[in-house]
Design a protein around this nucleic acid. Structure first.
Lengths: 229, 229, 229, 229
DNA sequence: AATGAATGAGCCTTCATTCAT
DNA sequence: GATGAATGAAGGCTCATTCAT
């Protein structure tokens, strides 16, 4: 009926449609039928090209994350010799871009959030390729900023704090305060990067072992002590 | 055939089972059948007691969040006259408890994460009761800490940063580094509270308008400037 | 909860509600639950009072038809010595009333139509009590009008023609031409009776064996005139 | 597992089975399962081919009525120039055939009766295509027979009388007197047509305004005789 | 290489009925 | 005498998958 597409057009149409639909609805709610009709492909085409819905999903992940990595590398183009601060900022920005990008190629953020909240087996597949490198890079940056004397636990906590700040922005729309909704994507991204970067640098500084307590650090300590005790 | 239970035991059994199953699998993947057999109830009992699977889900939410609010009130028992720092710490701890509690009464964290990533209509229901108060409280605390001169945008960003740090801990198990997994729940919670509190106080201090720039703040600024420019 | 009704109030409420609901929706579409809530009775009350939905239905039939018979007896109050024409007219009117009456006591028409189109076992129950007497009476009247020489088949056909003309008015509302819808029930009924009576007398006359056309045609006219006037 | 049928055999099997089952049991009592197993098709096939049970029902209607219209056109093949009497007879016969035909292709009669007594939305669909044309045709014929001076109401009543006489024969089997049951379908149909035709012509004559009885009554007789002979 | 037809497993829901009180 | 709670059977429908072409 419909004119035949040449070669592997159907396959890539399916991948594109699947990425969109999976990101919008999640693995379980996205139906094969919907993906196929969005791709103007036959209902059997998913199984023909990918073997199963689940394998298509895995393929989408692989593709999406590879793209995320390619488009927004964690080092942000910085050499290994860049300062820890510069690397931190670049990493935050890359991570935010991954979460906020919803162009036709980048629903990665939505998908990963959904998986983290309600994992499929697919999550395991990208853990090593995407999450581990991120965790390690962040860990290294924090370690550098916090100094060699800091406890390992502090480093881990700080890395998590920074990553979570970024990850939260992958939640579905409507979560941001009205005030931020009006900004265009790029402006928002720059501001957020700036904010998270400064906030995190301040946070790291505050938790690192204080060789010599600066005045305002002390005040922070005091409040804290009072609270706990 | 199975012995009849007296009273409305079935209804509460269903609620308990549903909370568990919904938290484990999410709304779509949790089947009525599974919930009913977990509650040792008939397949029709969900409809009898709640009208539909969806209404049961809404009920579970309401209950779970009410419990979260009751058990872990945001003010942590502090009076309104407590210092901003104390209120911040208490709020962080309450929020963390809500996310990490997975006792028979508190899957709220898991569920909210799932909803944020992939919303059902149920999300709307608790937004006002749970999310808004949290946002407002955090906003007020940050405003107090950051001072009246800070731009509104800064306040909003900081509140988000703090909330996101906590929310991230609602993700399914297996996400925490091995090192933290070994700690018992309560110890972990105390450490995390401590960390997020200090980290956030440091972060807030770092982003607030600097009347007189202390030396090391300036260095942070410099790095940042270098990066952007 | 609800105040207890005394004695058999619930039972009669159920009967009334059931009659309404059965007439509106038919046996299969009417649910026990709907009937019970319309009667403000417990879901178990049907089974308690009547044993089953089907037995309630049969009870409704019996009651409805008994009422129809009592309120609109086929002889219309005429003695056995009334003329065949008078008895025909009375019978037609009674039958029409049975079909058109939709007061709280008389959904009989709707129900019988539904049963004729799509029978339940209940139909058998009233066949003897309601349908047979009607058929026999109509047969006798027609036989008298048509004369002893007419073939039995003709008599049967005529009786059917008359009965069918009346039965058709039991169909659900919205079937009558707009023109007739505007009339009030009683006026419509009188007009219809008049029409069917005259039409049928004419029809019978037309099909009876014609020895010599003129004389008794005239007498027929006379009778008719007498009847109407 | 069951051998695959080629082409769209399943779809037409379903339609055929559905027509039978719907006619026997009515929309509500006919189950998808029954229809499918009668069509030796899978339980999901109704949804695949028609979308839902209701749409299948609508399809069955459309088909059945189109067939009824095609096989038994109201004009019975008569030209528009045929006499009113001839057209009346032809129309009555067509209508009776539609009601009595229960070959594999024509349960239309049963279904329409059921719908008239207990309507589905499907009824609306065929009202315009089937019921309206019939009503209009009958109206025109009666108007011609009854003359221009007759009140519109009389014409409407007569048309209804004729139509109802025919419609009544769509009721489920077992309603006809034993005497008629023994006749074969075709003989019964011819006799019934003859009867209803003569009965109705007589009825119309009897209700029309009588200026002077004799002349046109006679002509009516003549036409009738001519028609019959 | 690709597809239209068809399937089977399972899900949510409805509903008449039953049971203990 | 009457009821609220609970149940089992079945119904319509969805959906990923398979098969023949």
């Amino acid at each position: 009926m419909a004119e035949r597409r040449d070669g592997l057009a159907t396959k890539s149409h399916l991948l594109a449609a699947a990425r969109r639909v999976f990101a919008e609805k999640g693995y379980r709610d996205a139906t094969s039928g919907e993906i196929c009709s969005a791709a103007r492909a036959n209902a059997a085409s998913i199984n023909y090209h990918f073997g199963s819905k689940e394998k298509l999903y895995a393929e989408v992940w692989k593709e999406a994350f590879q793209e995320a990595i390619d488009r927004y590398p964690l080092d942000g183009g910085l050499g290994a010799d860049a300062s820890a601060e510069a690397r931190l900022k670049a990493t935050v920005q890359s991570l935010l871009r991954r979460m906020l990008d919803s162009s036709s190629l980048g629903y990665a953020g939505q998908i990963v959030l959904m998986e983290l909240a309600n994992p499929t087996e697919a999550l395991e597949l990208v853990k090593q390729d995407v999450i581990e490198p991120l965790r390690r890079r962040m860990h290294a940056i924090v370690r550098e900023l916090v100094g060699p004397k800091a406890a390992e636990e502090q480093v881990v906590f700080c890395a998590i704090s920074i990553i979570h700040q970024c990850l939260g922005f992958g939640f579905k729309k409507g979560k941001l305060p009205a005030m931020l909704e009006s900004l265009d994507k790029e402006t928002l991204l720059v501001s957020l990067t700036e904010h998270i970067y400064r906030f995190s640098v301040g946070g790291i500084r505050a938790v690192r072992p204080q060789v010599n307590a600066a005045p305002h650090v002390r005040s922070g300590e005091c409040v804290f002590r009072a609270e706990v005790g």
